[in-house]
Computed example of a mutant assay.
Amino acid sequence: MSKSLYERLGEDTGITSIVRRAINIHMENPNINARFLPYKERPEYFETVVQHSINFFNSGSGGPAIYEGRDMETAHKGMNISPAEYMYAIDDIFESLNEHNIDDDTKKDVLAILWSLKGMIIAK
């Protein structure tokens, strides 16, 4: 029996580390950081967004977390995220996956999930 995506991503600890690092990379990326830097001024809200992101990845990969945030379309409504911005965000997530030594097959599975979400996020 093969391991679940949740297990391959390092379970709770690994997913938390991957997501937190990806968000930090977003904040450093001049192509998309304008979307993330304002959260620094609202640290409690920022932590809520981070925790929602962690829970989303955790539950979406087969983990036990319960995602209680808004659906993707509602969460991104009015943001008018461009396809290029979405690709920058994916690149940042992959940088984090690489830093965490995630294998290629697992990265392909993550990409499939991210790609399935794009229609719910881009230009909403």
Rank of each mutant, 00 (worst) to 15 (best):
M1N: 05
M1T: 09
S2H: 10
S4W: 05
L5Y: 05
L5H: 06
L5W: 04
E7H: 08
R8A: 09
L9D: 08
G10H: 00
D12P: 11
D12C: 03
T13V: 15
T13F: 09
T13W: 02
I15V: 11
T16S: 11
V19L: 01
V19H: 02
R20C: 04
R20D: 05
R21H: 10
R21S: 11
R21T: 13
R21Q: 13
A22R: 00
A22M: 14
I23D: 00
I25C: 01
H26K: 02
M27S: 08
P30W: 07
P30N: 12
P30K: 09
N31Y: 07
N31K: 11
I32K: 07
N33P: 08
N33M: 12
N33S: 10
N33K: 13
A34I: 06
F36D: 02
F36P: 03
Y39H: 15
Y39F: 14
K40D: 04
E41S: 14
R42D: 12
P43D: 10
E44W: 02
Y45P: 00
F46Y: 12
V49F: 03
V50K: 09
Q51P: 06
H52V: 01
H52D: 12
N55M: 01
F57K: 00
F57C: 05
N58K: 07
G60I: 03
S61Y: 06
S61V: 07
S61T: 09
G62W: 03
P64L: 12
P64D: 15
P64Q: 15
P64N: 15
I66F: 07
Y67A: 05
Y67T: 02
Y67K: 00
Y67N: 02
G69S: 01
G69F: 01
R70N: 10
R70E: 14
D71C: 04
E73S: 10
E73M: 05
A75I: 07
A75P: 05
H76N: 11
H76M: 09
H76V: 12
M79Q: 14
N80R: 08
S82L: 13
S82I: 06
S82Y: 06
P83Y: 03
P83S: 07
A84K: 14
E85S: 04
E85H: 12
E85Q: 15
Y86G: 05
Y86L: 10
Y88E: 15
Y88S: 11
A89M: 15
F94C: 06
E95Y: 01
E95A: 09
E95K: 10
S96M: 08
S96K: 02
N98M: 03
N98R: 09
E99T: 09
H100L: 04
I102H: 03
D103A: 09
D104K: 09
D104I: 06
D105A: 14
D105I: 08
D105W: 04
K107T: 07
K107D: 10
K107V: 03
A112V: 03
W115N: 14
W115M: 07
S116L: 01
S116Q: 05
L117Y: 07
L117H: 06
K118D: 09
G119H: 01
M120Y: 04
M120F: 07
M120L: 13
I121E: 06
